[in-house]
Design a protein around this nucleic acid. Structure first.
Lengths: 147, 147
DNA sequence: CTCGGTGCAAATGCTTTGCAATGTC
DNA sequence: GACATTGCAAAGCATTTGCACCGAG
């Protein structure tokens, strides 16, 4: 993950809009996102920022996550009730998720055949796909061993 | 859609738990669900009940939708922020969704190859699937014509 | 008659918003 | 300087909960 390139993506996006400004907060939040491993939520990101001495408000975290989503640096998911999960999307291939209902683990996988099949379905229906999300809920190998 | 069979499914489920009771409200809500076409939300179902002269509270609607989900009569989805969508699941094949970002239309499709491919992915990872949801977001044929 | 279910309104938790202060351009 | 962005706390919204009453078993 190249932090410099991500910052440049954000910077270009901000300029492209002609209105949005490059603030310290936005870059600080981007850095925190890039530091993250796997999925995180807005709350967690906020506390991570605070405990690193970065002073931001939750509102700004939410706003900036939306902004980062717009420029493709972050993906947002809603696997369960009452909480959105995010992940950095910079330089990552298109992937899907296996979600363990026991331990809550999220396992990512990539499958070209699956993606191609999706495209087929779309062209059959004359539907122009923009993004897609496949979630498979079940029990992971770890939890199956346990029980 | 056979309303009698659905009611029987619910009845059996209630008895099987040994604790849950068969109330008028639960059957009234089930009926309203069976009457529905396509996707609906809790709020809409609630108002549909009220305007049909059935007196229930929102809390009961939510509780019952959860119950109907447990016994497989209803599926719940979360396509967008801040609102869950439900659909009757009784006697319906496993299907996925194309969601139009322009008009909000939800198009269902069935694809065996896709389902088989998903199973393959799971067994590769020793993951035991229970349910899955694929959403493809984009623009539908109708909206592409318009623009 | 017992205990699960219901209705209501208040509570919850995530997310957004209004407004004055701040910092970018 | 103009105006987008921030911070804070308060508001919003879908959903849940607490509790007194009701009704299924």
């Amino acid at each position: 993950m190249d932090s410099g390139a991500a910052r440049e993506t954000l910077s270009k996006y901000l300029k492209a809009t002609g209105k949005k400004r490059a603030t310290q907060e936005r870059y600080a939040i981007l850095d925190a996102v890039l530091d993250s491993q796997g999925h995180f939520d807005a709350e967690g990101l906020y506390y991570r920022l605070i405990s690193n001495g970065v002073s931001v408000s939750k509102a700004t975290v939410y706003n900036t996550l939306e902004l980062l989503q717009e420029c493709g640096l972050v993906s947002k998911y809603r696997f369960t009730e009452n909480s959105s999960r995010y992940e950095k999307a910079f330089g990552r291939p298109h992937h899907h998720h296996l979600i363990c209902l026991d331990c809550g683990d999220i396992i990512e996988f990539v499958n070209d055949r699956l993606d191609r099949l999706q495209d087929e379905v779309c062209s059959e229906r004359n539907f122009h796909p923009q993004s897609s999300a496949l979630q498979i809920f079940g029990t992971c190998a770890k939890c199956r061993k346990k029980s």
